[in-house]
């Protein structure tokens, strides 16, 4: 495992825990897109179907269990425990606009036409765009709380660090995964605007506000 990947994974864990921490301590899901979290939950479940069929390492299995359980917990907090605080009326992005294309693409572009491989490709494609409802919500309400901004930054950094990991693996191991790399680049590019606002505002101690 490359250092970039380890840093990426830790950034991913940090993002998930930050979000849970925010919702739990403020007892509120305000400003958080339930749709994005629901799609991330679908991403983990459809990608980690191999949890019981192919063992890679204790590290891999632990992370998979952590991602699935933290994601299910997040969805539960948003849609059940703190449902009253969830801004459903600002969370207007249509999930089928990304789920259907991700599924169609997975049926066309996969490493083998098997249930596991199609499910894996679907999860990779869906992950690339699952953040759209959240970014759309930030744009719509015009701002994000600082902790939500830190969450988005950690989540964006995760795939950006994976890109460095893929470059490293390509040069040193000859490893190249076109599906993951393509989706990962799209995923990172989607955070472009947000990264800019994060560095120019949040880091300087201001709240993240999108200009009208």
């Amino acid at each position: 495992m490359t250092l970039f990947r380890l840093a990426g994974d830790l950034s991913h864990v940090l993002a998930i825990l930050l979000l849970l921490y925010k919702i739990w301590t403020t007892k509120s899901a305000a400003g958080i897109s339930g749709k994005t979290q629901l799609m991330f939950c679908m991403v983990y479940v459809t990608r980690y179907l191999d949890l019981f069929t192919s063992f890679i390492s204790v590290y891999n299995s632990t992370m998979k269990v952590l991602f699935i359980s933290a994601s299910v917990a997040t969805v539960y907090l948003i849609y059940f425990k703190f449902k009253a605080t969830y801004d459903g009326n600002h969370d207007t992005f249509r999930m089928e606009f990304v789920i259907v294309p991700a599924l169609i693409l997975a049926l066309i572009w996969n490493y083998a036409f098997t249930f596991f491989e199609i499910s894996w490709a679907f999860s990779i494609f869906l992950e690339a765009v699952a953040i759209l409802p959240q970014l759309f919500m930030v744009t719509k309400t015009g701002e994000a709380e600082n902790i939500t901004s830190h969450y988005l930054f950690a989540l964006g950094s995760y795939r950006a660090l994976y890109i460095l990991n893929w470059i490293d693996r390509y040069y040193f191991e000859g490893h190249w995964d076109p599906i993951a790399v393509t989706a990962g680049i799209v995923q990172t590019v989607l955070y472009g605007d947000f990264f800019y606002l994060y560095f120019t505002r949040v880091i300087k101690g201001r709240k993240l506000q999108v200009l009208p």
Partner: peptide
């Protein structure tokens, strides 16, 4: 082996 290699990341 090829298939395994694609799924060693998270």
């Amino acid at each position: 082996k090829e298939q395994q290699q694609h799924h060693d990341e998270l």
